Amino acid sequence: MTTYTTNLLDFSSKSAIVTGAASGIGRACARLLAHAGAEVVALDADAAGLEKSYAEVDNVTTAVADVADLSRVQAAVGTMAFDVALNAAGVMIRKDLTETSPDDWNRVISVNLTGYFNVLKAIAPHMPDGSAIIQIASITAHLGYRYPAYSATKGAILALTRQLARELGPRGIRVNSISPGVIVTGLNDTYFADPEHATPTISQTPLSRLGAPEDIANVALFMASPLASFITGEDILVDGGLGSTAHF
């Protein structure tokens, strides 16, 4: 019996959780998984953003929680058994080392790294054989970039992904990460609306454009699907080729 590619991208019998789902990459991933048929829990601290993003999407349930708070994450997800978990919650503080305060550092760490740990701590014990965990890292994990707190968390996500791939592999759980390049989201849309900032980045990108959240969601759908059934512990750079040429 032939298995067609379209069937492999059918998530109608699957459940998924996406963090940072009120906007940007998280929202694009949650909506694409829902479009593919999954029952999706969209989790974010932004209640208004969640309501706006999913008011007309029947197979998305919203959950309000700050991923930095393990007890709130646990209360939001209970003992649900998710087939797909996608960690996308994140904050960025645009400060260099001398400007970054201990409070700045701790806030970025608490969301971008501890938040990922909290979500996986709450749900990984209940994930079934054949499930997939996808973590949103960043091109900043691969290149020297100007924001130390943000870059440090994204580099740590790569290490965490590799470690969990080994730990959870015997249970049939795949763990991979995606490193977006320059993607226009709510974190940076004002910044890149200025041609002075956008033009140099576009000129260094072989595909000659900035990325969109949907570019990342498309790869996430592949990584969550049986098409990627023999891939774990890997990071996919989705950057239009920027990492092959750029020096920030």
Rank of each mutant, 00 (worst) to 15 (best):
A55G: 14
R174L: 00
A224T: 04
V119M: 14
V60A: 07
G115M: 00
T232A: 02
A141I: 02
A124Q: 10
L227M: 15
N176K: 03
L113M: 08
G90C: 08
E234I: 09
K14S: 15
V91M: 07
P102K: 07
A68C: 08
A36C: 15
D104R: 09
G90R: 03
W105I: 08
I183Y: 05
Y4P: 08
N218M: 12
D83S: 11
P148R: 04
P102C: 06
D10C: 01
V119E: 00
N7Q: 14
V41E: 03
T232D: 01
A47I: 04
L97K: 10
V84C: 11
L50D: 05
N87I: 02
D104M: 09
L33Y: 09
G144Q: 14
G181D: 06
T190N: 10
R107V: 04
T19L: 01
L168N: 09
A159K: 09
Y4A: 12
A81T: 13
G169T: 04
L8P: 07
A75H: 11
A137G: 10
S225Q: 06
A137Q: 07
S71K: 15
H35P: 01
R107C: 07
I133C: 02
V111D: 00
G181V: 06
S13V: 11
A152E: 11
D69I: 13
S110G: 12
R27L: 12
A137P: 06
G20L: 07
G24C: 05
S53H: 03
G115Y: 00
N118V: 02
A217V: 03
K95D: 05
D69C: 12
L237M: 15
S71M: 08
S244F: 10
I231E: 01
L158E: 14
R162D: 10
A217Y: 02
E214H: 04
G211L: 05
R166L: 14
G20S: 10
D194A: 12
N106T: 12
V119S: 00
G243C: 00
I216S: 00
I136P: 01
S244V: 12
D46A: 05
A141P: 02
I134K: 01
A34W: 00
T19P: 01
V67S: 02
A55E: 13
S12P: 04
L168C: 08
F117G: 01
L43G: 00
G90I: 03
Q135C: 13
S151R: 02
T100V: 06
S138F: 05
G243W: 00
A193H: 08
